[in-house]
Nucleic acid binder design. Structure first.
Lengths: 109, 109
DNA sequence: TTTGATTATCGTATTATTACGATATAAGTT
DNA sequence: AACTTATATCGTAATAATACGATAATCAAA
């Protein structure tokens, strides 16, 4: 994609961008909704609910794990996935703050 | 990127993903922060504040406009950009709801 | 009408993302 | 040890995103 120059932005800006990426694909939104609502944590359950190949789901789970918003507990041959509450609250706070920075004032357009 | 199968997801899931994309790049986060805090709407001002080429900033602005979270009023040779309050509130609501779906309960991991 | 100022678009190189089949891995079970 | 089950990773094709220089477009002013 062309080199995103992460070094020229603040840590906060890069973190927001990363957290937003968790929600920036409908499949990941679906996964997060499932994990947030139920506690259906097993990967196979997610594969059943999503019309995507097992490899694709696993790849999305890996990305969500990288961001930190989900965690997995290995219990072979299964892996139990769930929301990481700490990061979930971090995201809630980060986005909440971001939206609150909007100053309602007369704009030029 | 491989064809994202938008048709297999709900409208809501696709909308969340799209709104998240607005924040999924640090440059766009920076632009949104600037527009939300100040009312420095002119494209040139943004180019001055960001260490990116004018063409790159314009491209990010186009993407934000596509999502709808910003709007631009043409006033040649300038364009005045600002937050679209309606979509901003939509995003606040959509993410707020998403985070509230988390059911705090005993998880398996 | 030409110039100047500002922004958009084009062209394009580079890199990231998405998807899926195939295969590897891991640990319990027989 | 061989088999089964569930998940991860590899390989790879297709496509989207990022960045920037160059150029076009737009309208006011000279």
């Amino acid at each position: 994609m062309g080199v995103t120059k992460t070094e020229i932005f603040t840590d906060e800006q890069n973190r927001i961008a990363d957290l937003a990426k968790a929600f920036a694909h409908p499949a990941r939104v679906a996964i997060l909704q499932l994990l947030a609502q139920k506690k259906a944590c097993v990967c196979g359950d997610l594969v059943d609910e999503l019309p995507l190949a097992q490899a694709t789901v696993s790849q999305h789970l890996k990305e969500l794990k990288r961001i930190g918003i989900i965690q997995g507990e290995i219990n072979p041959p299964r892996v139990c996935y769930c929301i990481n509450e700490t990061v979930w609250e971090e995201a809630r706070h980060v986005f909440g703050s971001a939206f609150d920075t909007y100053v309602a004032t007369t704009r030029c357009c």
